[in-house]
Design a binder for these strands. Structure first.
Lengths: 207, 207
DNA sequence: GTCTATATTTGGATAGAC
DNA sequence: GTCTATCCAAATATAGAC
């Protein structure tokens, strides 16, 4: 008796790749492991994606198109407020990522994959992300600049750089804090997001 | 005419491995690439280290023994002050890493290797680092606890987790800020450290 | 679109001479 | 300690039948 897969071959490959990339890194996860986990044939990767590098990019595209759209939507809402706060802008950045990470199908692992991308310092991947999604960070930087007019451009960029690091690392769950026993994943991540906003806003505002 | 190497085979392997691990990750850098870069024979890795996993651990040990010692030395000095500040403790943590990263022979890349280790979520490496160097973070956490008595234990740990993320990411130079043209590496990193201390102290102190 | 089979390269590790 | 040579497993990728 064969089970009928709920998702297409292509989607199953993307899901398995995401999980294995998060766990073992891009070089550490082989296409054999990916196709075995996805219960598809080895040759299917090359048929659907052409190469491992293309597969990696598609893993990002599948999540980041949506995530970027939502972040900018939220940012537009915040910009329309009569008196937006730093916390509002941080919330516009973090909440869509939080929602993604609570997505039933693999959103949480994706945040770890995304953090891995930052470690790929000189790779084709950095260029792909910056070319395709760099405008999101640009728009947020402009919003922060409006709210922090007392900081000169250089000072602001230093702080944003540090803030992005803190957000990336925390959303990837690289830290040591474990979920409390009995606490739901949702509640844990919502508290984390609140701490992040609180901490980062203070850092950005520092006298 | 043969050049006489300045460093032993063992040291050259460690140096080349460090650089390639930083650039390509642990799985992404092969022993063949490492030995070629070190100008030593492939078999030398297994002779000196036994396996790739052991080589990885030695890359950390070579730097972290010294780094941990210096951090705790500085922390002891700060603890002996009549009225130590949060900034003093952060300085005790950051300055030794800053000095290491300015070390002529490869200190800067090591900070990137260290950041890579955080992404290895469930690996043997995480356990190795926590078993051998976890006590350093413990001691610093205790120092922060003394300086932030208004925070309950859980609140403090959240903030420290976020702070460690910001420090790790920034010291690995994962951010977007480039060194100014004409600015020395030393000056760039010293400014970064000052920004880091300032930002993180504000985050830890947030009302 | 999916499969089997295979070409080709590269990986970690070791044996044994020097 | 260092070398050459080699083993063997695993990697990416493709060709061609179905």
């Amino acid at each position: 008796m064969q089970e009928t897969p709920l998702f297409s071959t292509r989607q199953r490959i993307l899901g398995a790749a995401e999980e294995l990339f998060a766990e073992r890194g891009f070089a550490g996860a082989s296409l054999r492991q990916v196709t075995a986990a996805a219960h598809v044939n080895l040759a299917a990767v090359n048929y659907h994606f052409g190469s491992k590098d293309n597969l990696i990019e598609e893993v990002f595209r599948r999540r980041l198109d949506e995530l970027s759209r939502r972040r900018l939507e939220r940012l537009a809402e915040v910009d329309a407020l009569p008196d937006p706060s730093l916390e509002d802008v941080l919330d516009a950045f973090i909440t869509p990522a939080l929602e993604l990470s609570l997505d039933r199908r693999g959103g949480a692992v994706f945040m770890r994959v995304l953090a891995r991308a930052f470690a790929e310092h000189n790779g084709r991947l950095r260029k792909f992300l910056s070319d395709n999604y760099g405008y999101v960070l640009k728009d947020f930087a402009a919003a922060f600049a409006r709210l922090l007019p007392q900081l000169d451009k250089e000072e602001l960029y230093w702080r944003l750089d540090i803030a992005v690091g803190a957000l990336t690392y925390a959303m990837a769950d690289f830290g040591m804090i474990q979920r409390r026993v009995g606490e739901s994943e949702r509640s844990h991540r919502e508290r984390m997001a609140q701490h992040l906003i609180h901490f980062t806003a203070a850092g950005l505002r520092a006298e």
